[in-house]
Design a protein around this nucleic acid. Structure first.
Lengths: 351, 351
DNA sequence: TTGTAGGCGTTATCAG
DNA sequence: CTGATAACGCCTACAA
């Protein structure tokens, strides 16, 4: 039923393969108009008489003509593709963002070209070079480590949208999630539940997000008048094992701890497992809060309370902004504020 | 202004590349050789004298020349990109596979062009059309719903690698993971632990994998002489909620059940949560086994026993096979056999 | 408003 | 072995 369902396309001659075969020259002949005029109606480059426009559109429809992006790219026009520098195609977080980008770009006819930078500034620079050699029409950088300067430089040649930082420049738009506020919120909620001895599993120091979240933790403590105790803070590297190790360290310190806030969900999962190994129950013995709200958080045992980071949405916004930039408009997207999602890994502090 | 902004080009130590500004014409001039000859050494299209070859290579290095893939594509040569039709960029499983593809393709100079088919045959057909209009050099289809016939037809024009089915044709290579054997293995292991009343949470009937896994469950039962009881089987749709609902249904039947085998990890997580809600403990009261071994399985609470499906590896193998096809060789990749990963969600049956 | 001519950077097809 | 000479399919002056 896959193929039979498309008799119109199947009936077309040649290879039996549909799109992309017809060229502008063929349309030109069928419509009795010069190729340039066709290009004009296609790109809205100049006004074309109503009559010819119709003839052209008819011919295009009849031939099932679709412009060849490759030729377009060579000719200096648009490739209809936007490069996306991500950090890891796997990773629940980036995966969702990429999905959002794809969904938003698609109806506009653009295709994303994903490429992983692997948290490495040099690699990212290469990625961008590669994307530019491929003539992408725009570049979206998801939380890269590239310098602001480099980004601005690229923005002079091609529209750039970057997430994870705030940066203004012509042809450049940035979308920044408020990590600090998110972490403050998490801490605040724990405090509201009566917790005062809150362990913090921080992220990789080299990671900007990690530092912002750390700040947010301190801010949350401060506004409640709780002194910041460095011995309650352990640094991890954003993956599960870090969370497990962190819990061991936290518990070794013999300090009283009734809650733990991990700088991302993955470390929170690791922490949950480590606690389980020590027969400490979440949330009965210790409350636990994560950050990101990855897909798995909702169905973890117990479901993890966390700060929701709108990854999918962020992807869509980044793509939408790119589309606006491409259209010569000023992007207007605003990143949603962090939200605390109360699930079952938190409960009021004892006493 | 574009170029002045990059004074550090030479100072970039390691990769020392510069973005593809230099053209073949420039190399031609510097080396005192015709463009065609340069193309020849670049593609190994024909033998070139040692002397000129060196001059050319020197010029290329000096100019930091990198061929323009777009122009290449137009000229009928290779685009150096291979299309990848996946089902969902997010999804831990496909994410890992995509990563594997990217890693394997990269050193060969090829770039993957990802596009999601969203489990829809028509959408997949469009994806492929789009990829072809973009002149990709090859197409990798990850477990699509496209008909075998359609795939074979495409393989006539461009190399195709497909996973999730077994299919032979010229220019086409398939990589199939043995789902049936994996499910048999899971069932077998549960039986080895003494379980005889094993509930099965099956997957979406429309999904080939689901049916194969269902068969494997039956095979495992049969080889142990345990009769297949349809009331112990509930169909889900491969996501967590399905797992939760399935557990409810399974428990309502009032049958004795000491273990549950879910056709994928996500449903297993859902099942774990539903059991928790009913105060049934895993594995103390009920053993649980999943399928896929997604990244989160290892750090779930408790860590989930499951069948390891080598997603990353599969991606690499698919890409490697594509590279072989592209080189005109016969692929030789073989998918690793399923393995049962014993973790902490299973234990011997009571009694 | 429209057509013509040239070029984008490579590869392929010819002759030598 | 090597160099001209066409394409590839489209866009953008320039001219009409």
């Amino acid at each position: 039923m896959t193929d039979e369902a498309r008799p119109s396309k199947a009936s077309r001659a040649s290879t039996g393969h549909s799109s992309g075969r017809a060229t502008i020259a063929m349309v030109s002949q069928l419509a009795g108009v010069s190729p340039s005029t066709i290009s004009r109606v296609l790109n809205g480059t100049a006004a074309v008489s109503e009559l010819k426009t119709q003839a052209i559109n008819a011919a295009i429809a009849k031939l099932g003509y679709v412009p060849n992006p490759v030729a377009r790219g060579l000719a200096g026009g648009r490739t209809m593709s936007v490069g996306v520098v991500t950090q890891a195609v796997d990773s629940p977080f980036y995966g969702a963002a990429l999905h959002g980008i794809e969904v938003e770009l698609d109806p506009a006819g653009y295709r994303p070209l994903f490429i992983s930078g692997n948290w490495n500034a040099d690699a990212e620079a290469n990625c961008i070079d590669m994307l530019r050699s491929r003539h992408v029409d725009g570049i979206i950088v998801l939380t890269g480590r590239l310098s602001d300067r480099a980004l601005k430089a690229h923005a002079k040649d091609v529209p750039v949208v970057v997430t994870g930082r705030t940066l203004n420049a012509p042809g450049l738009y940035s979308l920044n999630f408020d990590n600090r506020e998110g972490a403050r919120l998490a801490t605040h909620n724990l405090i509201q539940l009566g917790h005062r001895n809150i362990g913090f599993i921080a992220g990789d120091r080299l990671h900007p997000d990690a530092n912002e979240r750390h700040e947010g933790y301190r801010a949350g403590l401060k506004e409640a008048g709780i002194p910041y105790d460095p011995t309650l803070v352990v640094h991890g590297e954003f993956h599960e094992i870090s969370g497990m190790i962190a819990v061991d360290r936290l518990l070794q310190s013999k300090k009283v701890i009734t809650a733990i806030f991990a700088a991302n969900d993955q470390m929170a999962f690791g922490a949950a497992l480590a606690l389980r190994r020590r027969s400490l129950r979440v949330p009965d013995d210790i409350s636990l809060v994560g950050f990101d709200d990855v897909p798995g958080a909702q169905y973890a045992s117990p479901p993890l309370s966390t700060i929701h980071q709108p990854a999918y949405e962020l992807g869509r916004l980044a793509a939408a902004s790119m589309l606006q930039l491409l259209a010569g408009n000023e992007p207007t997207a605003v990143v949603p504020a962090p939200r605390f999602i109360a699930r079952e890994s938190t409960r009021p502090a004892p006493g």
